Amino acid sequence: MTPMLATAIRLLTQLRHDHRSLALVAVLPVVLISIAYALFDGAEPLVDRLQLDMMGVFPLILMCLLTSVAMLRERTSGTLERLMTTPITPWGLIGAYALAFGLLAAAQVAILSAWCFWALDLDIAGPVLAVLLVGVVNALMGVALGLFASAFARTEFQAIQMFPVLVIPQILLCGLFGRREDMAGWLQPVSDVMPLRYSVEALEQLRDHSDLTSTYWADLGIVAAVVVGVLVLASLTLRRRSA
């Protein structure tokens, strides 16, 4: 068994015994999206758009929070230093976190999608599996941001403080609360550098088109490139901290 796979299994085992985190991942998004559905009394097409966009936003939020705290515990408890004396490389450790939390995110998106499509009657033109793909890529972006944020925190409270800096501007400017075309002119270029904006656009392509459009793939590629870039930065922080 490779060190990366062994580390991923260890992380998944820890998560399996953390019932509060599992409830946060599996139950909270379902509850919140149901509240949003009831708040707007099932009004279409607003509710469909909101449900679809939130299926991309929730994985990013929760994986960022969970990963930043989990990696910070590894750093402060000395586990990271011990791991770095084993054959595992920084990239192997990053891959282990991406694998473990990516699987957790896939389960989260699957549960949320099942609830939205079957219980809340979400209707889109595109394939459901393409929605799952966007959700998992967004979750990996959350993992990458969480790993990166953990390098600049010494306590769990400081790690959570990084969340508003890294995530909330993306949520505000991604088009979730209104059309990007209606934003102030100076905000639109800022929105263009936010990766979550491309995730939301990809989901909107699935809402309106039965085929996977070139825009969908381009948007997904941009988000995936950001994930790789942030993971590279996160691996560099591991080298510095373990020296």
Rank of each mutant, 00 (worst) to 15 (best):
E181D: 14
L99F: 14
S113Q: 09
L176F: 05
L62Y: 13
L5R: 01
N138R: 06
E201F: 00
L72V: 09
L72Y: 08
I94P: 05
G102S: 11
S199K: 00
A114R: 12
G146W: 09
S191L: 05
W217K: 11
P189N: 04
S21I: 11
L176A: 02
V230S: 08
V25E: 04
V232C: 08
M63W: 00
L11Y: 13
V227M: 11
V57Q: 05
L83Y: 10
V226G: 09
V223P: 14
V136R: 09
E156C: 03
P127N: 04
S68L: 10
A107V: 15
A114T: 15
L203Y: 02
W217S: 12
A159K: 05
W115N: 02
G185W: 10
Q108C: 06
M4E: 15
V228S: 10
S235V: 13
I168T: 15
L140V: 04
C174T: 02
V230W: 09
M1A: 12
S242Q: 13
L39S: 11
T79L: 06
L172Q: 04
G229D: 01
M183P: 07
E181V: 09
A151P: 01
R207H: 12
P90C: 07
L46N: 09
A110C: 10
E81M: 11
L187S: 08
F157Y: 06
V190N: 07
P169K: 09
R197L: 07
L166T: 09
I88T: 14
A243Y: 11
A6K: 04
E156F: 07
L112E: 11
G135V: 04
R154D: 15
F163W: 10
V193N: 02
R16Y: 12
F163P: 02
G175S: 07
D121C: 00
M54L: 15
R197F: 07
R239Y: 09
E204Y: 00
P59N: 07
I171C: 10
S34W: 06
I111W: 10
V165N: 05
F148D: 00
E204C: 00
R20K: 13
H17Q: 12
H17P: 00
A225N: 11
V69F: 04
A159M: 08
Y97C: 06
M54A: 13
P29R: 06
M1Y: 11
I124D: 03
M63S: 13
G135L: 05
P189S: 06
V143A: 02
D18N: 15
W91D: 09
V25L: 13
S199V: 02
T85D: 07
M4V: 06
G135T: 04
E201Y: 00
D182L: 12
L206E: 03
S235E: 10
